[in-house]
């Protein structure tokens, strides 16, 4: 298909690529190793003063592949990712042991009970103040009712028929 990794695996040249063919194998390991191999084959003897240049090229190539791999969306992988049972059990065991050892501050674990007036210094003065005015109360009620009726009337405005009835004959 002509992508930059198509020479990595010789069998991919023979087989027709299909929807399940991975265009990028494992950019972390494959591309770097294959890049080194390819450059050795292509250039024959690797001479000293261009080794640094090749390394720069390879690291640049690696970065580009990494960026592309990050953007690739492997739709096939979404539903088949399952760990081996032993690996799952091992990891769960490690996590359980680690959580035993990790220090979790008590301030996080203590369940905070809400104190409604804890930052109010003079609670009696606030509580004994007159309540909101009737006008404010009416405003709040009217606004809430308007919002509620507006919410219930969210609908599509019918202007034209959507379905074309195809006449017979």
């Amino acid at each position: 298909m002509g992508c930059c990794c198509s020479t990595e695996d010789s069998s991919s040249l023979q087989d027709e690529p299909n929807a399940h063919t991975r265009l990028l194998q494992d950019p972390v390991s494959n591309s770097y190793q294959t890049g080194l191999n390819n450059s050795a084959n292509e250039y024959g003897n690797s001479y000293g003063n261009s080794v640094a240049q090749k390394t720069d090229d390879q690291s640049a190539q690696y970065k580009v592949l990494q960026q592309i791999a990050n953007k690739v969306i492997d739709v096939g992988a979404l539903d088949c990712q399952t760990l081996e049972e032993h690996e799952y059990a091992e990891r769960a065991r490690v996590y359980a042991q680690s959580i035993n050892k990790i220090h979790i501050p008590q301030s996080i674990l203590r369940k905070k009970k809400p104190f409604l007036l804890m930052d109010v210094s003079n609670a009696e003065r606030i509580l004994s103040a007159p309540p909101i005015s009737q006008a404010d109360y009416n405003l709040m009620t009217a606004a809430t009712e308007n919002l509620s009726s507006a919410y219930h009337t969210i609908q599509v405005t019918h202007t034209k028929d959507l379905v074309v009835s195809l006449g017979k004959g």
Binding site: T159, K160, L162, V163, V164, L166
Partner: peptide, 10 residues
Amino acid sequence: MLKPKTLSQI
């Protein structure tokens, strides 16, 4: 069939 332009407007 559905009218494409009307569907898009909706």
